[in-house]
């Protein structure tokens, strides 16, 4: 059985990192759609206004931590305030170059964050991660 397709949203203030993530995601063959946002607030608006999923497909959110204006934590906190049925369409992964203990602990504290991933994103990490998503 071929694994389910997924929607992807990448949130990162670095254009290059968005580009890399998109490429790697496309290579997995699991992507139904991929969207990138350089501003977390725009991604949040997009998610807020999107209709509930009717195709039964989950959306994977890859969120960077350190971004100007609205950082990854602020994004997750705002996301947590969205209606439950909306949130159930999404799975959040935090992606960062941070090696700061506080950041890592803060990620663990957020129950809505599935996992913390180190940058740079590689095909191996992404494949391993997606194997756990059905």
């Amino acid at each position: 059985m071929t694994p389910n397709k997924l929607h992807f949203i990448v949130i990162d203030d670095s254009k290059l990192d968005c580009f890399i993530a998109e490429k790697i995601i496309r290579n997995t063959g699991r992507s139904e759609t991929i969207k990138s946002f350089l501003h977390a607030s725009e991604a949040l608006d997009y998610i807020r206004n999107a209709p509930l999923a009717t195709d039964g497909l989950k959306t994977i959110l890859l969120v960077d931590i350190q971004m100007p204006v609205m950082n990854g934590f602020e994004f997750v906190e705002s996301f947590d305030r969205l209606p439950k049925e909306k949130r159930e369409d999404y799975i959040i992964y935090v992606l960062s170059s941070s090696i700061n203990e506080n950041d890592l602990n803060r990620v663990r504290y957020h129950t809505s964050v599935r996992q913390f991933l180190n940058k740079p994103l590689t095909s191996n990490t992404l494949s391993a991660m997606l194997d756990m998503v059905h």
């Binding site: 941070s98 740079p120 590689t122």
Partner: peptide, 18 residues
């Protein structure tokens, strides 16, 4: 430093890998 210096480096590393 971990972000502002590692960030661009890791971006480049990711791009090289890709």
């Amino acid at each position: 430093v971990t972000h502002d210096m590692r960030g661009p480096l890791l971006s480049i590393l990711g791009a090289v890998d890709l």
